[in-house]
Design a binder for these strands. Structure first.
Length: 500
DNA sequence: CTTCGCACATATCTGATCGG
DNA sequence: CCGATCAGATATGTGCGAAG
């Protein structure tokens, strides 16, 4: 929505001039009042009548409505407009009949209209709301499917006692670390943060336990956020489905694997697929046609395609992403060039590359994690040296809009995982428990084979290439003895408290 | 109807976490 | 880089009664 105000009206100076009331004089509020008067004035001749009495002076503005729109000290906004000779009022109201009437002064009354964009969210009535879209209102995916996923959470249980005692233990460990520091002020602050952090963990446990958490699908990446996605990794071991342990089917270097479609120039033509709705391409792109915006990107994709006439699998990035060894390859390259000073383990090197490479790919060109950063930049250079085609592609897409990559990848991911795999598996057999953690699917042991087979088949069909998947069982790592001991300690504490 | 103040409710901000 | 969530502080909004 845009404010419609007289074209010769300048409101900015009022905000500067505003004396002690300056806190309540906001530019949006001034524009809002002018907008309302302007709009109502246009309708004055037609229907601004009440009980036959004439409103010709101006337009009636109800003080309750004004207060609702402008806040408690709305009077200041009106007064300041009057003081500056922009509007005037007849100062007449009749109880039960009419409110005070307002109109523009002569200077502005007959002016043409100009449009001004609101500065704050409150006055942007028709803009897309920030943040989450509630499932009920969402049309991105089959709502019935999401409801079914929600239903599966009924069977999901968490060992509350064990999980909470894990948090207790974690708290105690972290507390010891914090209080061993020297800076007293820092200790106080960190302890406060730790309490908040642990309360958050406990809350996430409770949310899984009572199943009251929200299930939302965000409007940007179309990901599905559930109680599980917000659960700390270490606490997943305490989750069971109908008493059975759960198994996670994870796609190796998923974000990079999902980059493969971006190398295919046809992806940038949502209409080129024959116009059918609800296809991969339609789901991923927001705009109608990206051909113009991504002209340079498309040209590069075509060039790459010419170069690899036998198929994209010839590109080392594509084959490595399918094998799930991109991070390892980059780590290896860095190792050879003497990036790692100490003799780190292979796992550590991979984790290091993964942590920074994703940040580099998604980062704002002007902020931290820039490709030109001295130490981290080396990781980007290594990536570019290993995979020149995809390196250039990332730079080209980021040249259009640096936020596009993260959004596109999340959409591709969620369309594949939730929109396709979960939907098809659930349609075939509604008994299979399915939970998603963005790029991975969680199910029980007896269905792993089935789900994994479907996942590989469906993603291969969508992307054109087969990813590597990894399985991880969510089982309790601690011995039974420690758990039992924790349990006994907890209970005896409770009994002691009761007795006291 | 307008205006005001009080008390309580809701929204927003800050700085942290989780996930990729 | 993107998303959601949490706690706690603070700012803003709302309902209501009373008076003008």
């Amino acid at each position: 929505m845009k404010f419609e105000i007289p074209s010769n009206l300048k409101v900015k100076r009022i905000v500067f001039d505003a004396d002690e009331r300056s806190n309540d004089i906001a530019i949006d509020k001034l524009h809002y009042v002018c907008h309302i008067i302007n709009r109502l004035m246009l309708r004055l001749d037609d229907d601004m009548r009440y009980n036959g009495s004439d409103y010709k002076y101006g337009v009636p503005l109800n003080s309750r409505a004004l207060r609702k729109a402008l806040g408690r000290r709305y009077r200041d906004t009106i007064d300041v407009l009057i003081e500056h000779g922009i509007i005037e009022t007849n100062d007449v109201f009749e109880v039960g009949k009419t409110s005070k009437q307002y109109r523009f002064t002569e200077q502005y009354r007959y002016s043409s209209t100009k449009y001004v964009a609101p500065k704050t969210n409150k006055y942007r009535e028709f803009s897309i709301p920030q943040g989450a879209v509630k499932i009920d209102a969402s049309t991105f995916y089959d709502v019935r499917l999401v409801k079914r996923v929600q239903k599966m959470f009924v069977g999901l249980t968490i060992d509350v006692i064990a999980a909470n005692s894990w948090v207790d233990k974690y708290y105690e460990e972290q507390r010891q670390v914090i209080i061993s520091a020297k800076n007293k002020k820092a200790i106080q602050r960190k302890l406060k943060e730790l309490v908040i952090k642990c309360n958050g963990y406990r809350e996430s446990i409770r949310k899984v336990h009572v199943k009251e958490a929200s299930f939302v699908q965000d409007a940007f990446g179309h990901r599905l956020h559930t109680p599980l996605t917000r659960l700390k990794k270490e606490l997943r071991q305490f989750v069971r489905y109908d008493g059975m342990p759960l198994v996670e089917i994870d796609i190796a270097n998923s974000q990079l694997f999902f980059m493969i479609p971006l190398l295919q120039w046809k992806m940038y033509h949502p209409q080129a697929g024959g116009g059918e709705k609800n296809t991969f391409k339609h789901r991923i792109w927001i705009g109608e046609d990206q051909r113009e915006t991504y002209r340079n990107t498309i040209m590069w994709c075509k060039e790459v395609e010419m170069q690899y006439s036998k198929g994209l699998q010839e590109i080392s990035f594509v084959s490595d992403a399918c094998k799930g060894i991109v991070y390892e390859r980059v780590a290896q390259y860095l190792s050879a060039s003497g990036y790692f000073k100490n003799e780190e383990a292979k796992e550590e090197k991979r984790a290091h590359v993964k942590k920074y490479l994703l940040k580099l790919i998604f980062a704002s060109p002007t902020k931290n994690y820039s490709m030109y950063n001295a130490s981290i930049g080396a990781i980007w250079d290594a990536f570019k040296a290993c995979y020149p085609e995809i390196g250039k592609l990332v730079i080209l897409i980021k040249g259009v809009d640096y936020k596009a990559i993260s959004r596109l990848l999340q959409r591709i991911e969620s369309y594949c995982i939730i929109g396709s795999v979960c939907k098809i598996v659930n349609d075939k057999n509604a008994d299979i428990p399915l939970f998603t953690l963005h790029d991975c699917i969680v199910t029980t042991d007896n269905y792993v084979e089935t789900v994994e087979k479907e996942l590989l088949g469906i993603i291969t069909e969508l992307i054109g290439f087969t990813p590597t998947v990894k399985r991880k069982v969510w089982n309790v790592k601690k011995t039974q003895f420690t758990m039992l001991k924790n349990y006994i300690d907890r209970i005896s504490n409770l009994i002691r408290k009761r007795a006291a």
